[in-house]
């Protein structure tokens, strides 16, 4: 675990506890979502973020509500980390009217827009233009917000990325490209679909690039804080490659997956590099929280989630007349 560069002041302790809480909230959300799928209560499929929590939390904790993010098909983690509530999230997952997108988006488009989340996207790489455009707007309008573009290793194969990186670099846009490299795109290992080095591709545009351990929330957070501060001053764009791992299959239905990924490999990441277990040990060791306090926090989050699920299950579907609402803005 990377040591925190800054001293552990009171506010640092609060920040750390919030980061821990947010990571556990993501894991708990996903466990419940998976359960909803397994018990056939959730329509469709969903992609779990479990295992990658330190990436979304480390990054989003370095952002303000004015900063924007764009999310992916694996978007629940980004959504929670950018400030969303369980109730509206579970409602969205079940297609209920009180969901963040009034049930129109579901898992693949879930986002709490009021906290600067510009949306989860079901097109791999589909948000790269949106994120860069948001950064262009910030520059044109003289506002100092930063946009973080989340995408996977697989998405680096999309040509769009190279077009927008070029423009972002030419025009020094305040955008941070955050590649969550979890080693796989669907059922294929990254090395089978990515030639050369992903970092070098961003560097080829003159974009400062960093690789960071995506299972270490403090390392992610510290790096992001620095890059965000610099991006606000017009020193962007930046690229971050976050080395991470997804615990579940590509989606909840991807259960028999040994043909592309071994159980041993999964076990190794879960047992030895889990971002939550690691950070918890750090918090205890540094005297920031006791085991009891952490257990209490975990329990509280579980209760919150259970209540939100129960609420969402009972919540009404959108009325039929909403079907052709929101096609065009007024």
């Amino acid at each position: 675990m990377a040591k925190a560069a800054t001293k552990k002041t009171k506010s640092n302790a609060d920040d750390y506890l919030r980061m821990y809480r947010q990571m556990v909230r993501i894991r708990t959300f996903e466990d419940n979502a998976n359960q909803l799928y397994l018990s056939a209560k959730m329509p469709g499929l969903t992609h779990m973020y479990s295992g990658e929590e330190a990436v979304a939390v480390g990054i989003c904790e370095a952002l303000t509500d004015d900063d924007r993010i764009t999310s992916t098909h694996r978007g629940h983690g980004h959504c929670v980390a950018k400030g969303a509530e369980f109730k509206e999230m579970f409602c969205e997952l079940l297609g209920k009217a009180e969901g963040y997108c009034r049930g129109k988006g579901g898992s693949m488009h879930i986002a709490d827009q009021s906290h600067g989340n510009l949306g989860a996207n079901a097109i791999v790489g589909g948000s790269m233009g949106i994120a860069t455009g948001s950064a262009l707007r910030a520059k044109l309008q003289g506002s100092d917000d930063v946009t973080v573009c989340f995408f996977g290793d697989g998405a680096t194969a999309q040509g769009l990325w190279y077009e927008v990186m070029n423009m972002a670099a030419l025009w020094k846009l305040p955008v941070i490209y955050a590649c969550e490299n979890n080693g796989y795109s669907e059922y294929t290992k990254t090395e089978e679909i990515a030639a050369g080095s992903i970092m070098a591709r961003a560097e080829a545009f003159g974009i400062e690039s960093h690789q960071v351990d995506g299972q270490d929330v403090l390392a992610v957070n510290e790096l992001t804080q620095k890059l965000v501060a610099r991006a606000r001053k017009g020193e962007g764009p930046f690229f971050m490659e976050l080395m991470t791992y997804r615990y579940h299959g590509h989606h909840v239905g991807d259960i028999n997956r040994e043909y592309y990924r071994s159980k041993d490999e999964e076990k190794d990441w879960k047992d030895n590099r889990d971002p939550i277990i690691r950070f918890r040990a750090y918090l205890v060791e540094q005297g920031i929280a006791t085991e009891e306090e952490i257990e209490a926090m975990n329990a509280e989050i579980e209760t919150d989630a259970a209540e939100a699920v129960a609420y969402a299950e009972k919540a009404p579907y959108p009325p039929a007349n909403e079907v052709d609402m929101h096609v065009y803005a007024d």
Partner: peptide, 16 residues
């Protein structure tokens, strides 16, 4: 199909 993007919610999607 109805002239709307396909909605996620089963309650709406089936109408389209």
């Amino acid at each position: 199909a109805m002239d709307v993007p396909v909605p996620f919610s089963p309650a709406l999607e089936d109408l389209t």
